[in-house]
Design a protein around this nucleic acid. Structure first.
Lengths: 253, 253
DNA sequence: TAATGTGAAGCTTTTCACAGCC
DNA sequence: GGCTGTGAAAAGCTTCACATTA
């Protein structure tokens, strides 16, 4: 999410669009796969296909980083891996702390994908003293009391919040107070943070609801229902204003 | 409000912008909290604050659903909860299958947030016969062999893929062949699907990389480094200088 | 009077299409 | 000949500001 800061480093050619930044990791992943297969160069068409975007968009995106391709040939895979890694800041180490060691925190602690690109799980924390002390994924879970000290000593730069929703804002505030300016929030709640702190969220429930919206459209607009869903049992009952009268169970044409 | 009239809600049909759809769940969550606290009405200003957006955007978003507010007053909380729920398709039941019961699948199976809004975990599946048969979150894990039958018999409408990346496309293909048209993918890979199938992805590693990008900018553009990150291991510490790049060699992490 | 609903303006992102270069 | 890099057009999204209405 945008920092809201208006001041720009005034570097010529800087100012990569947010939408582009969000796709760079995708390109990087596709390039890494090519690299492992020993492929030396790749065209925008091929790379775009591997990343699931169209080639014009890919070329435009890459053009914000510089002119790293060769006309008539394509892009050097290794070179591009390096340039994107550098742009994303993956050539440095990013110690991460996971706060809230429930089911999800536990799963993330064991998730291999963390380590792969400069992200290193530096600490696991939990508010429950029964959890603190446990050994998970080769690390001892620390108690929340030590949060500030851990952030300082281990130079934690990214906090991952996997607590229950009610605890999330409090944890967030403490992270921010401890100097952390990048937070990944898995708790289903909106976090409010001061200017300059970036929060990104991962929200299962929101994703499902978006899918449901489109799924609903599919079965109502087509005559042919793919996997007909069973009728609704407990729907939100309307009070306040009889809703049923207006648009009762619409089935728009 | 809402009398028996069949006045069409302004933008019905193909009309609701994708960006708006993605925010409706956020509004719904904020409204549900208000509802539980017994708040009867809410202004766009208040609701927007609770959802973390600005009020003009909120009003515009809601206007795509219809004119559900009252000038001078605000929105009726219960009524709006119902309208958004209906628009999102949450007044019906959405049986979900989770495929791949590793750490993450396990965590999701136990995650309470599923059940809350019409999403019901109908089945857990795994390719490993040692996992199939186990009891998790009150359900018996089924073997992948039964996928097609389960999808059919339980009217599964959404597939959640939590397999390792290499297995994901195969699972996806089978889901699609079985008639599923909505997929939530947690595997770090691009899925290719035919037209008409919706895929949404949740990707931890991408989110972290986006955070890293902004974090890097902060420390290089500001004089004041918040939590100074330790220098990279072997990486060429090329700072914000542009192109210049040579180094066709990679710098993996 | 207070707060919605919405044209219009301003931005951002995507797509097009082709000049330029290897 | 093939493919990148990029202006320009189109589409999509956000914000403004105010007429409108309960």
């Amino acid at each position: 999410m945008a920092t809201g800061r208006t001041e720009r480093p005034a570097h010529r050619g800087r100012g990569i669009p947010e939408a582009t930044v969000a796709r760079l990791p995708l390109y990087l992943r596709a390039l890494s796969a090519l690299s492992e297969r020993g492929v030396p160069t790749v065209s925008s068409e091929e790379l775009a296909a591997a990343a699931g975007v169209n080639s014009a968009k890919l070329r435009k995106d890459l053009s914000y980083l510089g002119s790293y391709g060769t006309r008539g040939v394509g892009y050097d895979v290794e070179y591009l891996v390096y340039q994107i890694s550098r742009e994303l800041g993956l050539t440095q180490d990013w110690p991460v702390a996971i706060i809230g060691i429930g089911n999800l925190g536990h799963a993330l602690a064991n998730y291999g994908g963390f380590a792969s690109r400069g992200f290193r799980v530096a600490a696991l924390l939990d508010a429950d003293r029964a959890v603190a002390g446990q050994r998970i994924a080769g690390m001892v879970v620390r108690h929340m009391d030590d949060l500030e000290q851990i952030v300082r000593d281990d130079h934690v730069s990214i906090g991952v919040i996997t607590t229950p929703a009610p605890a999330a804002q409090g944890v967030c505030d403490r992270l921010v107070a401890a100097g952390i300016t990048s937070i990944l929030n898995f708790a289903p709640t909106v976090l409010s943070v001061p200017e300059g702190v970036d929060v990104r969220k991962v929200d299962l429930s929101i994703e499902l609801q978006i899918l449901a919206f489109h799924e609903q459209r599919k079965s109502t607009s087509d005559g042919a229902a793919p996997n007909l869903p069973p009728a609704a049992p407990g729907a939100a009952a309307s009070r306040a204003g009889d809703v049923g009268g207006d648009l009762p169970e619409v089935m728009p044409a």
